[in-house]
Design a protein around this nucleic acid. Structure first.
Length: 238
DNA sequence: CGCGTTTGACCGGCGC
DNA sequence: GCGCCGGTCAAACGCG
């Protein structure tokens, strides 16, 4: 189900080269990014080199449409994966399977809706408002509120990458078609409702899929003392 | 004792 | 209308 969720985000899906600095380089026509590289860089939640990212897959609601940048090292997400096909196509494999790893069926289904906007999951827009029964009426008002979000893939031994922010785990769920449970985190900073989901590829347990939802209302420095100036600068516009 | 994690239960959306 | 599923809550638990 959720496979279709991000599958609908397809127009906003990007593959970035392993080296983040490549983003600032002119891309070949088929892979030209619709957004300024600077913008894309600002959307990165952390220093890729710092956390040892081998490859990146990024989608964002903040960007307007887009093409995918092939990532050679990116393992196959499934039989429909663009990475597996090795060509810059809008096939939803990567996008659709992102939140629902290994969900081949739903990936295919999502591809039929690739032109729709990203409505998100069934409840992501509610934020942290699992309110009392008396407030449930208000919940519907929030329903269509969107949170900017993007997801990317990293090859890492650890599930939770240190992105400079402090996260608190509030749930873990075994999702369909995935061998690994999905973990749910929320930013611990007060008044910051950013959430992220972390899960591992069922086809390659070394690969970690991280999905961020929302915008931080603070800099990473507010959470940790280890954050450097670059972090603050990088996220100030986030 | 405070904070973070775990985990079962619950809820709402969506597809059939 | 019903069942499945993802997302969240919150009590219990663990750890420093």
């Amino acid at each position: 189900m959720e496979g279709g969720q991000l599958g609908t985000c397809l127009p906003n899906l990007y593959f970035l080269p392993p080296d983040p600095h490549h983003i600032s380089m002119p891309l070949p026509p088929p892979f030209q990014l619709p957004c300024q590289p600077k913008l894309l860089h600002h959307q990165m939640p952390f220093d890729q080199e710092e956390v040892g990212i081998h490859g990146v897959m990024l989608s964002s609601d903040n960007c307007c449409g887009g093409l995918m940048y092939p990532l050679p090292e990116l393992p196959s997400f499934g039989k429909n994966s663009a990475a597996a096909l090795g060509k810059p196509t809008t096939t939803v494999g990567a996008a659709g399977s992102m939140p629902n790893i290994g969900g081949g069926e739903e990936v295919t289904k999502a591809s039929n809706e690739s032109t729709t906007t990203c409505n998100g999951s069934s409840t992501w827009w509610r934020g942290s408002t699992m309110m009392a029964a008396g407030e449930k009426g208000k919940m519907k008002i929030r329903r269509k509120m969107r949170e900017p979000r993007f997801c990317f893939q990293t090859r890492s031994e650890v599930d939770v990458l240190d992105d400079g922010y402090k996260w608190r785990k509030y749930g873990q769920k075994v999702v369909k078609n995935s061998l690994h449970p999905r973990s749910y985190f929320r930013c611990t900073h007060s008044n910051c409702r950013v959430k992220k989901r972390v899960e591992r590829l069922s086809t390659d347990c070394r690969m970690v899929i991280t999905t961020y939802e929302g915008r931080h209302t603070h800099s990473p420095c507010d959470d940790t003392n280890s954050g450097d100036g670059d972090h603050a600068n990088c996220f100030s516009s986030f």
